[in-house]
Amino acid sequence: MKKKLIKLSSVIFIVGALLIILVGFLLAFIPARMTKIHTDKIVKLYLNDMSYDIEDFHDKCYDMIQEDELITEDGHSIPIFYLLKENTYDNKTIVLVHWHESNHKAMYPIAEFFLEQDFNVVLYDARAHGDNTAKTVTFGYYEKEDLGTVIDYVNSKMTEDNIIGALGQSMGGATVGYYSGSNHGSENLDFAIIDSGYTSMYDEIGWQIDSFFIPMPTELLTKLGNLSNNQVYGYTYKNVSIVDAMKKSSIPTLIIHSEIDKKCPYYMGKELYEAIPHDNKRLVTFNNSKHLCAFWDEQAKYEEAIISFIDEYVN
C-alpha cells in the first residue's frame, strides 16, 4: 500500500511539474503569435461593442488615405495608412499605435478626433498584427524599432519642420513609452501619449498570472516563461522594461490610465509617470473605465486632456 502511494505521489509530482513547464512555455509562445484573421476578428468585435461604424469612417476619410509599405532592416513589411488633413504632408502629425491582438483599424475613432484637431494621422499594423509580416510580437522590444522606422518615414514626407507626436494604447502605449526613452525618440518626437500602458513585460505577465481564476505559482511560472521566451525569441521579459526606458525620456508625455483597469493596473500608469525625469508631464486618471474604455466612457474628458496637454507642452 505504501509503495502504491509513493508511486502515485511520484506520478502526480511529475505530471504537475510537466504541466507547469508547459504553461511556462505557452506563456512565451501564445501571446507572441498572431494572425491576420484573429486580429481582424478582435477589432470587429471591439468596434461593434462600441457601436462604431468602420464603413462610415472609410466613407468620410477615403479621399485622405495614402497607403504605403515600409520594409525594415530585418526584412518584414509595415503597412502604412497616412491620412492627410489638408492634402499635404507638411502638417502637424500624430502616429497612432494599436494594442495587442488588434490592428490599425482599432485606432480609427481616435484618428477621427485628431483629424478634427487638424492633425495628419498615421496608422500602421504592429509586428505580427494585421498585414505586418513580422513573425512574432515582442511587446515593445522590437516594436519600438518599427515605430522609429515609421517616424523616419513621416519625417521623409515633410519638407519643413512640423510637430510629430505618438499615441499608443496598452501594448501600443508601452511601445510609445519605450521609443520615447530612446535617442531616436528624443531627437524625432515632440510629444508622447501613453494610454493604459504597462511598466514591463515581466510585471504584466506576472499580473496576468495573478489574475487567473485559480491560484497559480506566479513567480515560478514567470521565471519559466522568461526562460522559454529567451530560448525561443532571444530576449527576456526583463529586457522589455518600459519604466527603465522612460527614465531617459526628455519629451513632453501624457499618461492616461484608469483606476479600475484589470489588464494593466493603475499602479503601472503611476510608475511610468513617476519614472519620467522632467516636469513636462501629466497623469490623467479615469475612475470608472475598464481597460481601453476611457475614450468611450468619458470621451469629453479624454479629448480635453489631450487638447490641454498639447496646448500647454507642445504648441
Rank of each mutant, 00 (worst) to 15 (best):
G16Y: 14
M246D: 06
D40I: 09
S10R: 15
D90H: 06
W207S: 13
I276K: 02
P252K: 02
K85S: 07
N287K: 07
Y89L: 03
L123W: 07
L283E: 05
V121E: 11
T88Y: 15
T133L: 09
G140Y: 04
E112S: 13
T35K: 12
L167Q: 01
H184Y: 10
A166G: 07
N288G: 00
E304S: 14
I193N: 03
T199F: 02
D56I: 05
F25E: 12
N315C: 02
K247R: 08
I260M: 13
P109Q: 01
G148F: 05
S289F: 03
K223H: 12
T93F: 08
S9G: 11
C264F: 05
I30N: 14
H129E: 08
M268F: 02
A106V: 10
S77Q: 07
I151G: 02
D146M: 12
N229G: 02
E112F: 05
Y108R: 06
Y142F: 12
H129L: 01
Y89F: 13
I37F: 13
D63Y: 04
I242W: 04
E303C: 12
I54T: 01
S180R: 01
T35R: 11
I242L: 06
A305T: 10
I71D: 05
I209H: 10
A111C: 12
I209L: 13
D261V: 02
T222I: 10
E143V: 13
K262E: 15
A28T: 08
Y302M: 00
L47Y: 01
K3A: 14
G225V: 01
T39H: 02
K3W: 11
N188M: 09
Y302N: 00
F213G: 12
N103L: 03
I30C: 11
G177W: 07
S228W: 08
Q169E: 12
G168W: 07
T133D: 10
K281C: 15
P215W: 11
L19R: 00
V43T: 15
N229V: 02
E187H: 04
Y178R: 02
C293P: 03
E73W: 12
I306Y: 04
D244E: 00
I260R: 14
C293I: 13
A126F: 09
L123S: 00
N315S: 08
T136L: 10
Y266Q: 06
S186N: 09
H100W: 14
L227V: 00
C293R: 15
V11E: 09
T39Y: 11
L189D: 10
I256F: 04
V23A: 12
L167C: 04
L189W: 11
A32I: 14
I164H: 04
D74N: 12
L227N: 04
L115F: 13
I94C: 06
P217W: 08
D244C: 02
D125E: 10
I151Y: 07
G197Q: 01
F81G: 08
G225A: 03
T39Q: 01
A126Q: 15
S51D: 11
V97L: 08
A128Y: 03
G225H: 07
L8P: 09
M107P: 00
E303H: 10
I214D: 12
P277V: 00
L8W: 15
A134H: 05
N183R: 13
G130F: 10
I20S: 10
I251V: 10
A17F: 13
Y153Q: 05
N239E: 13
I276Q: 07
F57Y: 06
V23Q: 02
K36C: 02
I30L: 15
N288T: 04
A32G: 13
L167Y: 00
